[in-house]
């Protein structure tokens, strides 16, 4: 009960942190927020130029296939990397005033989430330009976003704790993240990889999130129950574990940052 009261009291701070992150991110760039939209578009053009001829026969609408995976994964990568650094970065503040500590990682994930919403506009543009199918199914798009949001918060919480104790995490995670990216079918179809890689992909939570998202925005079909269930298990597991680890350790942060 006290937890919720506290949460309510500091919700203003959470929004202020998010606003600050977004303001600072594009401050002084000429195009400003437009970059959230342009960035994925430009990346997609580069990657499409390189890979689309390679997988021409397996993937009908390569730009949408690529971009839908990319926005999801980029969100995850950005959100977790930022929240990993958040406690260390907020150290100065942590040592001077009392504020609930989860605000640091969670606000980072949420501000990345807002960037993701901008990128969705880019995706919509590409769907329209490539004459992709649009049906009512597309209205289901918030569902995978909620999965990935919860999953990212959980992972972000765990990483932020790890980074406080071992600064090596910061460097290790960069490597891990790129391995993770290649093991998520973003720019290749699953059918293109050998069997032993497939088994790794099938145990990768990101694969299912991307899959659900693609079902909705690319294939116009309601994702099946089995995949949804896996997504729910992964995101619930991640957030429960994340909160548990975080609350176990949060009182020690101030001694280590």
């Amino acid at each position: 009960m006290r937890f919720f009261k506290n949460f309510w009291k500091y919700k203003g701070l959470l929004t202020q942190f998010i606003i600050r992150d977004i303001k600072i991110k594009y401050r002084r760039s000429v195009l400003g927020y437009l970059w959230s939209l342009l960035n994925p578009l430009l990346m997609m053009i580069v990657l499409t130029a390189v890979f689309s001829s390679m997988f021409k026969f397996d993937i009908p609408n390569f730009p949408v296939y690529l971009l839908s995976g990319q926005v999801i994964f980029n969100f995850f990568a950005e959100a977790t990397t930022l929240s990993m650094n958040s406690i260390i970065g907020g150290g100065a503040l942590l040592r001077k005033v009392y504020i609930p500590k989860y605000i640091f990682p969670v606000s980072k994930v949420l501000s990345s989430f807002i960037t993701l919403l901008f990128s969705l506009l880019a995706l919509l543009i590409v769907i329209i330009v490539t004459k992709g199918n649009i049906s009512f199914v597309i209205l289901l798009f918030p569902l995978p976003l909620i999965y990935i949001l919860l999953f990212s918060i959980g992972v972000g919480l765990i990483l932020s704790v790890l980074a406080v104790y071992f600064r090596d995490t910061l460097h290790l995670y960069t490597v891990l993240l790129s391995a993770w990216m290649y093991l998520t079918p973003l720019f290749y179809p699953v059918s293109a990889v050998p069997d032993y890689v497939k088994s790794i992909i099938y145990s990768n939570p990101m694969y299912y999130f991307v899959e659900v998202f693609r079902d909705i925005v690319l294939y116009n079909q309601v994702p099946d129950f089995h995949t949804n269930l896996l997504c729910i298990i992964f995101s619930a597991g991640s957030i429960v574990l994340g909160l548990f680890v975080f609350y176990k350790n949060q009182n020690n942060f101030v001694l280590h940052v």
């Binding site: 009291k9 500091y10 203003g12 701070l13 929004t15 202020q16 942190f17 600050r20 503040l93 005033v97 504020i99």
Partner: peptide, 12 residues
């Protein structure tokens, strides 16, 4: 002012 006020737990 809004950021710091929020740090101290005041509403907008």
């Amino acid at each position: 002012i809004f950021l710091n006020g929020a740090v101290l737990g005041y509403s907008k």
